[in-house]
């Protein structure tokens, strides 16, 4: 599912990051790469998604979060 559809407190793994090279550079440099485990900390409508990746709380704006495909577990 899309990262924007994941609910708060869900844990999962980043599956696919769409978008252009520019986004790929920015998003991987801050720690979000394919295969990384993550936790959704907060996901309110019209707000950036707060996710916890590699011990870092990251705010990802909604438009970019749209192109991130994730697989959620627990």
């Amino acid at each position: 599912m899309k990262l924007t559809e994941a609910k708060a407190d869900m844990m999962g793994i980043i599956r696919r990051i769409g978008g252009d090279a520019r986004l790929a550079n920015r998003i991987t440099a801050i720690g979000i790469t394919e295969g990384t485990p993550f936790q959704v900390v907060k996901n309110d409508r019209n707000m950036p998604v707060l996710l916890y990746v590699r011990e870092t709380l990251i705010a990802l704006n909604r438009r970019d979060a749209e192109v991130v495909e994730v697989e959620v577990g627990a």
Binding site: R22, L23, R26, I27, I30, P48, L50, T56, L57, I58, A59, L60, N61, R62, R63, D64
Partner: peptide
Amino acid sequence: MGGMIMELPP
């Protein structure tokens, strides 16, 4: 224009 991608320090 890049959207906001930022870390929130504790």
